[in-house]
Amino acid sequence: MSSNTVIVHRGIDSQGEEVIKPYTPTTLDSDVGHFELMYPQGRMSHHFREMRVGDSLAVKGPKGRFRYQPGQVRAFGMLAGGSGITPMLQVARAILENPNDKTKVHLIYANVTYEDILLKEKLDGLAENYPDCFSVYYVLNQPPEGWKGGVGFVSKEMIEEHCPAPASDIQILRCGPPPMNKAMAAHLEELGYTSEMQFQFEV
Rank of each mutant, 00 (worst) to 15 (best):
E202W: 12
A92K: 13
Y23D: 10
I170C: 06
F76C: 08
M88L: 07
A185S: 15
A75H: 04
S56R: 15
E97I: 06
R174M: 15
L188E: 11
S195M: 09
P40G: 00
I108C: 06
H9N: 12
R10Y: 14
Q69T: 15
P40T: 01
N111E: 01
C163Q: 02
I85W: 00
I159V: 14
E50A: 13
R174K: 14
Q142R: 15
M44S: 12
E128K: 13
D116F: 00
L107T: 11
G71P: 04
C133T: 14
D169V: 08
P22M: 09
G192V: 05
E97Y: 11
G152L: 06
G146A: 02
Y68R: 07
R10C: 13
M88N: 07
T24M: 05
A75I: 01
K156D: 12
R174A: 14
Y130Q: 04
M197I: 08
D116S: 01
K122D: 14
M51W: 03
Q198S: 01
F153P: 05
A183K: 05
K21G: 04
V6P: 05
E161N: 06
L173V: 03
D101I: 05
Y23S: 09
G176D: 02
Y137N: 14
G16V: 13
D116H: 01
K156N: 11
M1H: 06
F35T: 08
L37C: 02
Y109A: 03
F153N: 05
L140S: 03
Q90P: 09
E128F: 08
I172F: 00
E202K: 11
E189L: 13
V53W: 07
D13W: 12
E121A: 15
V112H: 03
G54T: 08
Y39L: 10
T86P: 03
K156S: 14
D29S: 13
P70S: 02
P179A: 00
M158G: 04
Y193P: 11
M78I: 04
F48C: 08
V73P: 09
L123G: 09
E161G: 00
G71I: 04
S14Q: 14
N4G: 10
H187T: 08
V105D: 10
D29Y: 09
Q72K: 07
D169I: 09
Q200C: 13
V136R: 09
L119F: 08
Q142K: 15
H47N: 12
R67F: 13
W147A: 02
V139D: 07
V154A: 01
K102M: 14
G71E: 03
H187D: 11
S3Y: 10
R65D: 13
V139L: 05
S56E: 15
V73R: 09
E18S: 15
K182D: 10
P179H: 04
S83C: 10
G77R: 01
Y109H: 06
Q41T: 09
W147H: 05
Y114V: 00
D13T: 11
K156M: 10
H46S: 09
V8G: 08
C175K: 00
Y109F: 12
Q171A: 10
P62N: 06
N141E: 15
E128R: 11
G192M: 05
P164M: 03
K63E: 07
F48A: 12
L118S: 01
V6H: 10
K63W: 08
